[in-house]
Amino acid sequence: MKKLLLQIFTWWNEQTIGTRFYTWRFGKRVGQDEFGNVYYEGGMSTYGLPKRWVIYNGYAEASAIPPGWHGWMHHRTDVPPSQDNYVPKDWQKKHRPNLTGTAQAYRPPGSLAVPGERPRVTGDYDAWTPGS
């Protein structure tokens, strides 16, 4: 019952009732990534491209889509990683969740959350003043 209520009243927990119905009606399962996110395709967008969407495993966070699936979702490739034996490049980093709003978020020196002063401005910038 709790899961049903979450699907009716929230959009950030896996999927909504509307997405569940649309997926049941038109969706063709394409694959699943290492995080448990499930990818679907079905129907046509207004641009004439096939609609592609993801059902997140848990909290809906767009940065949790791996690079291979990101390319497929954005129509950079027509072959999904599940059918392509996709191997990430050496330079591609592992997923890190978005830490904004948490204690681990990046806070540069001089920000309100970190004591200290900002680095001094170098001479390569002149502020604009009216009439100059």
Rank of each mutant, 00 (worst) to 15 (best):
G58F: 01
T46A: 11
K94R: 12
M1L: 12
Q104E: 15
Q32V: 15
V87T: 11
W24M: 13
N13S: 12
Q7C: 04
G123E: 12
N37V: 04
R76D: 08
V54Y: 01
P115D: 13
M73R: 00
Y47F: 10
D124T: 09
I8A: 08
H74Q: 00
P119C: 03
L49E: 13
V121Y: 08
A127S: 13
S45T: 15
D124P: 00
T122D: 15
K89A: 15
Y59H: 13
G71K: 07
R120P: 03
R120W: 01
Y47T: 10
K2Y: 07
P66W: 09
H95S: 06
G48E: 00
V121G: 06
P81Q: 05
G58R: 01
G27V: 08
G71P: 00
K2F: 08
V30K: 08
K3W: 04
P97S: 12
G42K: 02
V79N: 04
P80K: 10
I8V: 11
F21G: 00
N85Q: 12
V54W: 01
M44K: 13
G123M: 04
L99F: 02
T102P: 01
T23R: 07
F35Q: 08
D84N: 12
A103E: 15
N37F: 03
G36V: 07
S111I: 02
T129F: 07
T77C: 05
W128T: 09
N98S: 07
T10I: 06
L112M: 10
V87S: 06
A127H: 13
W11T: 09
G43C: 05
R25N: 05
P50G: 04
A113K: 15
G36N: 06
R118V: 11
A60D: 03
Y106D: 12
D124A: 05
W11S: 12
L99S: 09
V38N: 00
M73S: 01
F21C: 10
N57V: 05
K51R: 14
A113V: 07
Q92S: 07
R107D: 05
P108A: 13
P80C: 10
V30W: 01
V114C: 10
I17A: 12
Y125I: 10
G110L: 06
W128M: 04
Y106V: 14
Q7F: 03
R107G: 03
N37R: 03
A113T: 12
G58K: 02
E61M: 10
N13M: 09
F21W: 14
P88T: 07
V87L: 11
T23Y: 04
G101T: 05
L112C: 06
N57K: 09
Q104F: 06
N85D: 14
A105H: 09
T77P: 00
Y47C: 00
